[in-house]
């Protein structure tokens, strides 16, 4: 569906700029997460450093989106779908910023792990990362394309990520008890798994706001059965 432009061109420009900054921020968070995980799996400290460096730009964009969103509310007093888009953008950006923080956490843990001989258990992170990353990407796509169905599917995938994280925690805790030498390494992997689980939580929040922006429906705090 083609959304007609506003009579007031500057209003369109302001909304377009807000959306552009939000998608740029999401792209940076995605890249940061990808670099952090590659830094872990490929034992590449440079990638980890890049991931950490990205976070500053993500933080700046969060502030910029807040500023632009407030200015749109002040200047144009948006209503209906415009209001929902602006409110959702303001609510989305802290979630994206925290995904960036999780990428930084993962990168810092990866650099610690890279100082020691490789742990084969690092591979346990691969499916968790793939699941978390797909949830995050889909949540952003759902918002950008106003795809309510995709947003609902993101929310319904969160439980699976929680289960994957719990399984990894259990296995790594058992290994910690069996092999005290690698205690620190396993502990870092537990924290990396938890960071990815948090990425899934943020993706769920983003998807919930995407549903609100697209359909004016508040699906937060509903049971999974009721929301799907």
């Amino acid at each position: 569906m083609v959304v007609p432009k506003h009579i007031l061109g500057t209003f369109d420009d302001a909304l377009t700029s807000l959306r552009k900054d939000l998608l740029m921020m999401a792209g940076l968070a995605e890249r940061s997460l990808d670099r952090a995980i590659k830094g872990l799996l490929q034992r590449d400290d440079d990638l980890c450093t890049h991931a950490i460096a990205d976070d500053e730009e993500i933080d700046q964009l969060e502030k910029q989106i807040d500023k632009d969103g407030f200015e749109i509310l002040l200047r144009y007093q948006p209503v209906a779908s415009d209001l929902r888009r602006v409110i959702s953008a303001i609510k989305l950006s802290p979630n994206i910023e925290r995904v960036g923080d999780q990428a930084t956490n993962i990168a810092k843990r990866a650099r610690k792990l890279n100082r020691h001989p490789p742990l084969p258990e690092v591979q346990m992170i691969v499916p968790i990362q793939a699941h978390a990353m797909s949830m995050f990407k889909d949540s952003i796509n759902a918002f950008a394309r106003e795809n309510v169905e995709l947003a609902h599917s993101v929310c319904s995938r969160d439980k699976q990520l929680d289960d994957m994280n719990r399984d990894a925690n259990r296995k790594l805790t058992e290994l910690m008890m069996e092999d005290r030498e690698q205690l620190r390494g396993y502990f870092n992997l537990i924290l990396i798994s938890r960071a990815l689980e948090r990425v899934g939580d943020h993706a769920t929040n983003i998807a919930e706001d995407a549903v609100y922006a697209a359909a004016a429906e508040d699906i937060r705090h509903k049971s999974l059965a009721a929301s799907v």
Binding site: P4, H6, I7, F11, A80, S81, D82
Partner: peptide, 11 residues
């Protein structure tokens, strides 16, 4: 039509 009017998209 309501959406287009209140959001200032009326052509």
């Amino acid at each position: 039509q309501t959406e287009d009017y209140i959001t200032g998209r009326f052509g």
